[in-house]
Nucleic acid binder design. Structure first.
Lengths: 244, 244
DNA sequence: CGTGACATTGAACAAAGTCAAAAGTGGTGG
DNA sequence: CCACCACTTTTGACTTTGTTCAATGTCACG
């Protein structure tokens, strides 16, 4: 996906962006970078010098304990903006790693400033993106803290479906889940063995279907009920948010 | 605590704030609000119209499932700035509730804009605060996702100690923990019964001491080792972060 | 004193983890 | 095309961790 397009489609999904923004965006030159699965985009401890816009592929932000236990804090999908902390020049507290072949657009500190200067609606849109990212993070806390394994898996599937829907990467109720069960386990704070069991259960019970890495949600309603899923945190209510 | 002072001391702890900022801050009129324990500061679903600076007392941001299970997403201490999402005018995805008698300063959308306009270092400082809040949130995900009950409790105690230290509310290695074990349980994704057991264990093993609501960390080193605690996410490295 | 909220403790139970082995899956090179 | 490789997924047996239920204790405060 074209980086301008990825960013624009993501921002415009919830924000009423005024005309001309797309042009502003197009005017910002971006440095494109590629990463293969497993490669590190941002390393914990390194001072942040760039922000990123994901264009293609999946990446994960993770934090590891010294004994090797790893928690994936969130998945990053095309259109996601991350590491806007660039302003503070602090070392990253997390590592970002490509899960599939990934294309990202890098934004230097100056570029980000330029965006903020050039277009205040755009600045607001980035603020919006950061607010949404935090909401996703909060929901992740609830998911790992208060939901059972079944609920966690169902909830994650629904979240991913919704987020992918926003960027046009779903085919009806089905989408490609290009990560191993072990990654899902690291995101949900479970063992990969248990994730396998739960996915098996969801499939046998008719909630989902799996073919290769493609997942189909056979009954979104039932799944949502199973895990008390609400899209509030993703969409910010039914309508589009105001900006500016 | 004086709201200007709370905000200033919090911001200055990690940011090199230029002279004059304190004056700018003092110039911003703030609306002070009080809440008693249990009272709601921000209700889930309500459109955000104000941001807040906590001045005195503890509050908690929480999200509940429809069957009553509750997750405290984070504790809010004096100096914390929250709900800066005010810009987007979205409904809150969470509820903020006072845990002790609380004093907060409310900032209307216009006030926040004013702060951003009046002082760009101050704007940067607020950005910094929001970056730190996100880091705390990420660590919360790791804590609930990949740490054992013992580790979670120890980790939370160390985090609170550090955060309280930054605002001058510790007495050496001891501090007041003005919340019930049931609140701690809701923050850590555990049952309150188990929190009681773990605190009992930590006390019997000589890691901590409890007297009324005061906790003393008898061996911070050992506690930190027990739960793999690092202050990186709170302090952003050893030195002060750059801003602006 | 008595009351209500909070904390502790024990026993039975359930959920998820660990360990180990077998069975797919997909990619590569002969 | 097939054999081989590494990786991922599945499955079973067993263990561990934390929950639930219920009773008992403690403490501040009227």
């Amino acid at each position: 996906m074209n980086p301008t397009k990825a960013l624009y489609s993501r921002l415009s999904h919830h924000a009423v962006l005024p005309d001309g923004v797309e042009t502003h965006l197009a005017g910002v030159t971006l440095e494109i970078m590629h990463f293969e699965p497993g490669e590190v985009v941002v390393r914990r401890g390194q001072e942040a010098s760039k922000a990123f816009v994901a264009c293609e592929g999946w990446a994960a932000r993770s934090i590891s304990l010294s004994d090797g236990r790893t928690q994936i804090v969130n998945f990053m999908l095309p259109g996601d903006i991350f590491d806007l902390q660039v302003f503070t020049g602090q070392p990253a507290d997390h590592t970002v790693r490509a899960l599939t072949p990934v294309k990202v657009a890098a934004l230097s500190r100056e570029k980000v400033m330029e965006i903020f200067t050039v277009s205040s609606p755009l600045a607001a849109a980035m603020w919006w993106a950061s607010v949404q990212e935090e909401a996703i993070l909060r929901e992740q806390v609830v998911r790992n803290g208060r939901r059972s394994a079944r609920e966690r898996v169902a909830h994650l599937l629904l979240e991913l479906h919704e987020r992918l829907r926003m960027i046009g990467e779903v085919d009806g109720d089905s989408f490609v889940l290009p990560v191993s069960q072990s990654h899902i386990a690291d995101a949900l704070g479970l063992s990969y063995v248990h994730v396998s069991r739960v996915l098996g259960y969801l499939e046998k019970s008719g909630f989902i279907e799996r073919r290769r890495s493609r997942v189909t949600l056979l009954d979104r309603q039932a799944l949502a009920k199973l895990c008390d899923f609400s899209t509030l945190y993703l969409t910010g209510g039914e309508g589009k948010g105001r900006l500016g």
